[in-house]
Design a protein around this nucleic acid. Sequence first.
DNA 1: TAGATTGTTAATCGATTAACAATC
DNA 2: TAGATTGTTAATCGATTAACAATC
Lengths: 220, 220
Amino acid sequence: MEKENKDPREKTISTAVINRLPRYYRYLADLKDAGVERISSSELAEMLGITASQIRQDFNCFGGFGQQGYGYSVPRLYEHIASILGVNEGYRAVIVGTGNLGRALASSPVFRKRGVTLEALFDVSPSLVGQTFCGFSILGMEEFEDYVAEHRPDIAVLTVPRAVTREVAERIDRAGIRGVWNFTNIELHLAHATVQNIHLGDTLMTLCYDLREKSGRAGE
Amino acid sequence: MEKENKDPREKTISTAVINRLPRYYRYLADLKDAGVERISSSELAEMLGITASQIRQDFNCFGGFGQQGYGYSVPRLYEHIASILGVNEGYRAVIVGTGNLGRALASSPVFRKRGVTLEALFDVSPSLVGQTFCGFSILGMEEFEDYVAEHRPDIAVLTVPRAVTREVAERIDRAGIRGVWNFTNIELHLAHATVQNIHLGDTLMTLCYDLREKSGRAGE
DNA sequence: TAGATTGTTAATCGATTAACAATC
DNA sequence: TAGATTGTTAATCGATTAACAATC
């Protein structure tokens, strides 16, 4: 908190760097859990399979946090990256669509681990509404706007069927939720909210590409 | 000049280009479904929010498929990108771990849409084994090695709990499955198999970053 | 043909790597 | 201190954009 905006220069961090931060964060979390106190750029480079130069450049984007001759303090670096990413900002999320994928996310540690609080689940199905899952009573979509107006969640996790995606996305956007974690296979661009489109299928295709590349080379 | 262009496979396609192909594929699928026959690089650029130059460069990596003065044939381009990605190679997949996420994937069209055939589901839980889900009878993990030896699936979808991830991954690798679509939060690197590590949490963090960036600017 | 749009080369931009002086 | 390792500048590499000649 007190370190926020300590750098007067408007150093913009490139998206290439931002996209690497979650991976650094994961490795640092593991190191921290293992009780490691310090790490050098070259040790970390070895672990991640990238160059030490890149690590030093990246970490320097947000102000020198290493110590010459010593390396980086694992807990401090971890905390610093967390604060850059907005982890532990206390963001609150709701899941819209309580099918298998919605339930999988609701029961996973993915929110807690990033300091995001899951607050509510929504669905339209009368067979689900009113039921309890993972300690949440599933709410009907007719309550959605009122709920959002009252609780002002930051993030909507969108796990509804394809057919209703655009309609539900519009409701989320109009209700004033600022971030959408979109798991449907429709690429969304909303007027106000920021959207992270996941597109799991894209990674399956990349895997297929890798398989074909490999088998081609192996001469199978 | 024309002798240089004999083999379009000769050119190495950069990973930057490969990573864009799934997105092209999605947009082309939509255009094809809408009955669009031809599209120019500038029209597509407008849709995707990138430059027409980049599109022409990308498509040219795998041999000129456009026609000067006309543009690109949507169906042909679609088929060509599909073949580069290895979509419709007839790859076969099994899901290992039939919890909420495994079931969500089993019931989603993600495999069918990429020409991948889902063949079997595996789990250890006695309450699941023997049950039927999405037309598949769930098999016990004790049958895994025999099944793989007999059916030789190409892809294992890994949706098991964190605690057993490494152990199950080893079994998959030893059994000779060549591709792993890994949804656990452990980053895997296997001796033989190619792994796509998904790390949903990373995208949640990126979303948090975007939210904080935005609210900082908005002066909330 | 004439207009349109690609294929391709050249210019620009950005990101990664290398090198080393600063300094803990 | 002396050794180690960062912070930072400079060099390299790769990717994107611009421009235009080729050509449908």
